[in-house]
């Protein structure tokens, strides 16, 4: 790796770290293939969204400070998740706005943080993807990525460069999947109802695979696809772009 390759820290996200490391390795591969030097700070755990969204502001702040410390000193911070990237980029500055010393550090980190597909498309301007994929896919837009980060075209542009892949859009690609973090376990019936509409839309596209950029949405969607006995597979976009051979989510 040359000394002028972009110096990127991967924010793995807790779900990828714990549930599906193959997404993390796919992200590393994509970044390295694009010429980045990738580091993975070892003191990272979680971005703090569970606490933040539960109204536990004190813990959310403490976690934010820990993330800031772990990720200072890198040119870029990249996360394979629209919602965790939004937490760092959009919410940390507000969370730490009145903490002397930390506000500026939060702003600085926010300025360097990107979601993976956004980083590949907009910053690195990747225009070649080596992976092949035989099949029809549909893309689900995770809410935070879409509405807070403005991620819409980037994943589609990248998927469009994969040989063999056909993208079939659902008119309701932007509809929420009903995950919502702890929402899905606090109000399981409502969540399941929203999720079923999502599943019906996905099924209606005729795609064999649903792709998204957030493992939260994907675990939710895959879990219901399996429960309903549908054959549609669910995969994180990083895995598809990197040509990962890991079994699809929820498959042995």
């Amino acid at each position: 790796m040359s000394s002028d390759s972009p110096n990127v820290a991967l924010f793995v996200t807790c779900l990828v770290d714990l549930m599906r490391p193959s997404v993390g390795f796919a992200a590393v591969k994509l970044l390295e293939d694009a010429g980045c030097a990738v580091s993975v700070p070892a003191t990272q755990t979680c971005c703090g969204q569970p606490a933040y969204n539960a109204g536990d502001r004190a813990d959310a702040r403490a976690i934010a400070r820990q993330v800031i410390e772990a990720f200072e000193g890198f040119t870029y911070v990249v996360a394979p998740s629209g919602s965790c990237a939004a937490m760092i980029k959009i919410h940390y500055p507000g969370l730490l706005a009145d903490e002397p010393g930390w506000a500026a550090r939060a702003e600085a980190l926010a300025g360097r943080t990107h979601e993976l597909t956004q980083f590949l498309s907009d910053v690195l301007e990747v225009d070649e993807i080596a992976a092949q994929y035989q099949g029809i896919v549909t893309h689900h837009d995770g809410c935070s990525g879409l509405r807070e980060m403005g991620i819409k075209e980037q994943p589609r542009a990248l998927l469009g460069r994969i040989g063999g892949l056909a993208l079939r859009e659902s008119p309701k690609a932007e509809a929420c999947c009903g995950f919502g973090g702890t929402f899905c376990v606090k109000y399981p019936e409502i969540s399941a109802h929203i999720l079923d509409e999502k599943i019906d839309d996905i099924a209606a596209t005729g795609a064999d695979t649903v792709i998204a950029g957030d493992l939260g949405c994907l675990l939710n969607i895959a879990g219901r696809l399996k429960r309903r006995g549908l054959a549609v597979k669910a995969r994180h976009i990083a895995e598809v772009l990197a040509g990962s051979t890991a079994a699809a989510i929820g498959e042995p």
Partner: peptide, 8 residues
């Protein structure tokens, strides 16, 4: 309402 994917 849903299965839980096993961690890898």
């Amino acid at each position: 309402a849903r299965d839980l994917a096993a961690p890898q």
